[in-house]
């Protein structure tokens, strides 16, 4: 079964540069249904109105971090099963542990390349 490239992807980052990078790389991977938010709070508000099929989020943002967004998503009955990939420069062991404990689906360390992004998306959808 091939990956549904029409899935709705929510990308969250407080740096517009990174949002543009993600959007471009996703477009190159044929994901064109992409929504943006600049912090967890904004993303959560959008997700509650219109759930996504995949969330790709930075960690270090204000007022709501990516980790808090992840916790809110996992605590929400409607959103809890949404695959969530953390894309962050926070690369300490304790970060990865905390993200895993909060229920992250996969973890990408910045800077990253297109192949890593493709591989992680494939991985969270069962190696498709």
């Amino acid at each position: 079964m091939s990956l549904n490239k029409n899935m709705r992807v929510m990308i969250v980052d407080d740096y517009n540069t990174m949002l543009r990078i993600l959007r471009n790389l996703l477009r190159q991977l044929d994901f064109n249904n992409v929504e943006e938010a600049t912090d967890g709070e904004e993303a959560l508000a959008i997700l509650k109105r219109n759930p996504a099929d995949l969330i790709i989020s930075d960690w270090n943002m204000t007022p709501m971090t990516g980790l808090d967004l992840l916790r809110h998503v996992r605590a929400d009955a409607q959103l809890r099963r949404t695959p969530f990939i953390m894309v962050t420069a926070e690369s300490k062991t304790e970060n990865v542990i905390a993200a895993k404990q909060a229920g992250v689906s996969n973890y990408i360390v910045k800077p990253f390349n297109a192949e890593t992004l493709r591989a992680k998306i494939g991985s969270v959808f069962g190696g498709q």
Partner: peptide, 15 residues
């Protein structure tokens, strides 16, 4: 173009 997008992540990191 992909390489340019990937390299542009420097701004996020340095920022």
């Amino acid at each position: 173009a992909t390489r340019i997008y990937e390299a542009s992540a420097f701004q996020d990191i340095t920022g």
